[in-house]
Design a binder for these strands. Structure first.
Lengths: 201, 201
DNA sequence: CCAAGATAATACCGATCGGTACCTTCTCTT
DNA sequence: AAGAGAAGGTACCGATCGGTATTATCTTGG
């Protein structure tokens, strides 16, 4: 298949197309299960072009994960800012996640999956995923501070456990109970640390 | 290297040795990253012997995961039975997990990791992992029933989210806070469903 | 003590892996 | 119009993948 006509054939476009195709393939079938040949033909490109923009397959994986982490956090930031500060803002985060779990093609957290795929290889992916979780905690701490929690560190860590747990269980189980279950757990956490928020809807 | 002298060279022994070596290698570096050749030489065996006991590499993976699931549940059952029934029995489960997270060589849940490794391949591993989580829930429901919880289904699902979340976070983060954090979350859950257990140590 | 069976060692199979070289075609800038 | 550079197609590289065949060696039951 030749390159799609109508869209400009700029370097940024080609690189973005490779990144998008690789991100989807890696997420659906795993980093080790998808070869560079396949990414090239899925992108309507050639291997040479891939290696022009990325140092190696590992470099491509790293670029994909950096972009993925950035997009996830942008998505969460936007979702959080749509709700006024307070305990409800934290719960809105869990509603967002519950919606995500129900989407077709959901297979868990791409960062955590990639870390599992590439454990034992290099430490680059593990480091990226570690940073990803750290940014999660920063966002949670900020929301908790806004809600009047004086010591947000421990509850932020607890909420992250809820998020990752619900994501894993949702990716394996067939039913869609993990999202609502995690939200109720978050309500419990909030009720125990947020002043005068013992009655959450 | 010839076969180790001193231990009987029985079929069960050879099969068990292959299973043990494969389980460790798959857990440490991932199912896709470990080849049959490597398993053979790690087991001091030959590929022919592996294919005498297992239909294929997928069959070996499946056998490894079945054994792993069985052993995990046996370990949890024994740990649970060491504590008298009640809310403390559930908390003992989380203490057990916290100890596990601190052990050298801990890399998360082998079942969940394998499901991430082989997503997109066959559905066999995903089904095994799904059953693994289901058995977790059965154990949790039993403990909750013993503790006097009339409707253990929802809290059991919530406790499973805590377990899986703490396992994932522990496998990625460097510090050892996820274990105690999950235990405190479990205390919150128990306090909200167990009659007269609002003061847990 | 000997035959039967299990095992290890080795080589091999086609396929695919990540990565590179060569050459043509296309697009854009000037 | 023309040149520069980016992209695609194809073939290739050594290595490794899962899986099989052959053969010699070793353990064990009768």
């Amino acid at each position: 298949m030749p390159v799609k006509r109508g869209e400009p054939l700029s370097p940024e476009n080609t690189r973005a197309r490779i990144l998008a195709v690789a991100a989807l393939a890696f997420y659906e079938r795993g980093v080790h299960a998808v070869g560079v040949n396949e990414i090239a033909e899925l992108a309507g490109s050639s291997k040479l072009t891939i290696y022009r923009y990325f140092e190696s397959k590992d470099g491509l994986v790293e670029a994909v994960l950096r972009q993925r982490s950035e997009r996830i956090h942008d998505w969460l930031e936007r979702g959080v800012e749509a709700v006024p500060p307070g305990a409800d803002r934290v719960l809105a985060l869990f509603d967002l996640l519950a919606d995500w779990y129900r989407q077709a093609g959901f297979h868990g957290c791409a960062m955590v999956n990639a870390a599992a795929d590439t454990r034992g290889d290099g430490v680059a992916v593990l480091g990226l995923t570690r940073g990803h979780l750290a940014r999660y905690r920063v966002l949670l701490e900020r929301c908790l501070l806004e809600a009047g929690v004086a010591e947000p560190s421990a509850p932020a860590r607890q909420l992250l456990i809820l998020i990752e747990g619900a994501t894993v269980v949702s990716s394996i189980d067939a039913d869609d109970t993990a999202g609502p279950d995690a939200r109720r757990l978050a309500e419990l956490v909030l009720a125990s640390v947020v002043p005068s928020a013992h009655d959450l809807h």
